[in-house]
Amino acid sequence: MLDWNDLRYLLSVVRQGSTLAAARALGVNQSTVHRRIAELERQMGLRLVHRHPTGYRLTEMGEQLLPALADVEESIAKLQRTVLGMKHDLTGTVRLTCPEPVLSRIVASGFVDRFHDRYSGLRIDFIISDRYFDLANGDADVAFRSGEASDERLVGRKIAESTWAVYASRDYVKRRGHPHSIEDLLQHDLIGFDGVMENHRATQWLASTLPGARVAARNNSVLGVVAAVKSGLGIAPLPTPIGDAEGELIQVLPPVQALARAWHLLCHPDQRATPRISAFIDFVIEELPALRKVLGG
């Protein structure tokens, strides 16, 4: 069976006048253009181009096929317009759950506005918490979640890296000094996590790495810990996108490998084919470069 992408390479060479210009137009290497046209000829069993030092020229058979190739291109373009029209007809709500600390960064990145511009009939309804909502039970439709994707009832994909480093306020460092190793943290006051965060990897890391450390305060949310660190009360591990964005904080120790995890986009498999959820997931995949900056720094 013919691959439409191979047809597209041949049409681009005809329209652009050379394989180099076609490669630039398609955003690929010139060698890719050569290879894909050769593969098209192999699949068809026909010689479509003459190869000259000055460039490619269509053979007689290539010229005869050109109108049919243009028809295929128009048919695919029509299909794409139809699909886009169906997407614009979508209505409803996508319930997205994510940790509280990343909400402002997601909104500030323009992700929400771009989604609403693309799908005027859809709206993102945020369900915000540092705890995990049960997607299998319908607590939310989709999730941005960091950590191990351990719930076998869900499907998804990795979308970014989650990194944590150790932070203190500038005032704290001025008063108490700058720790230079994890062991140095035993001489400092720490801010810990409790409540819904008591089983978080940051809590487990503090307990296993620094047993007996002085904990000056505990909080049940990342933003609460950020506030405590900013006040100068103590030192704590924090997500680097959040810690680095706070001008009052400094990274006193570099990212901790033991705290590194991945961000995942997750949903229940029964929801994956739902048009509004499918549209959201497709949009997230398009937005991955921007989301990686938002979630991973």
Score class of each variant (00 low, 15 high):
Met1Thr: 09
Asp3Gly: 00
Trp4Lys: 10
Asp6Lys: 13
Leu7Lys: 04
Arg8Met: 12
Leu10Glu: 05
Leu11Lys: 05
Ser12Ile: 01
Val14Ile: 11
Val14Gln: 09
Gly17Cys: 01
Gly17Asp: 04
Leu20Asp: 11
Leu20Glu: 13
Leu20Cys: 06
Leu20Thr: 15
Ala23Tyr: 03
Arg24Ala: 10
Leu26Val: 03
Val28Arg: 05
Arg35Lys: 13
Ile37Met: 11
Glu41Gln: 14
Glu41Val: 07
Arg42Leu: 11
Gln43Glu: 14
Gly45Leu: 08
Leu48Thr: 10
Pro53Asp: 07
Thr54Tyr: 15
Thr54Lys: 14
Gly55Trp: 04
Thr59Ile: 12
Thr59Phe: 09
Met61Cys: 06
Met61Trp: 12
Met61Gly: 07
Gln64Arg: 15
Leu66Ser: 05
Pro67Ser: 12
Ala68Lys: 13
Asp71Leu: 14
Val72Phe: 15
Val72Gly: 10
Glu74Ile: 07
Gln80Gly: 01
Asp89Trp: 11
Leu90Asn: 06
Thr93Trp: 07
Arg95Leu: 06
Arg95Asp: 10
Ile106Asp: 00
Ile106Met: 05
Ser109Asn: 04
Phe111Thr: 02
Asp113Ala: 12
Phe115Gly: 09
Phe115Cys: 05
Arg118Phe: 03
Gly121Lys: 11
Asp125Gly: 11
Phe126Thr: 11
Ile128Phe: 03
Arg131Ser: 15
Arg131Val: 06
Phe133Pro: 11
Asp134Tyr: 11
Asp139His: 15
Asp139Gly: 04
Asp139Lys: 13
Asp141Ala: 06
Arg145Gly: 02
Arg145Leu: 12
Gly147Cys: 09
Glu148Pro: 10
Glu148Val: 14
Ala149His: 14
Ala149Ile: 00
Ser150Met: 07
Arg153Thr: 09
Leu154Met: 07
Arg157Tyr: 13
Lys158Pro: 02
Glu161Val: 14
Glu161Met: 09
Thr163Ile: 01
Ala165Val: 03
Tyr167Ser: 00
Asp171His: 03
Tyr172Gln: 00
Tyr172Val: 01
Lys174Val: 02
Gly177Asp: 02
Pro179Ser: 01
His180Pro: 00
Ser181Gly: 03
Ser181Cys: 04
Glu183Asn: 12
Leu186Phe: 04
Gln187Trp: 10
Ile191Gln: 03
Arg201Trp: 05
Arg201Thr: 10
Ala202Glu: 08
Ala202Asn: 10
Gln204Cys: 11
Leu206Glu: 06
Ala207Thr: 13
Ser208Ala: 15
Pro211Met: 07
Ala213Pro: 11
Ala216Cys: 06
Ala216Tyr: 05
Ala216Gln: 07
Asn219Leu: 12
Ser231Lys: 08
Pro241Leu: 02
Ala245Ile: 00
Glu246Cys: 13
Gly247Gln: 07
Leu249Gly: 00
Gln251Asp: 00
Val252Lys: 02
Leu253Pro: 06
Pro254Asp: 04
Gln257Pro: 01
Gln257Ala: 12
Arg261Cys: 03
Trp263Val: 03
Arg272Asp: 05
Ala273Pro: 00
Ala273His: 10
Arg276Asn: 06
Ser278Thr: 03
Phe283Thr: 02
Glu286Trp: 01
Leu288Asp: 02
Leu291Asp: 02
Gly297Gln: 07
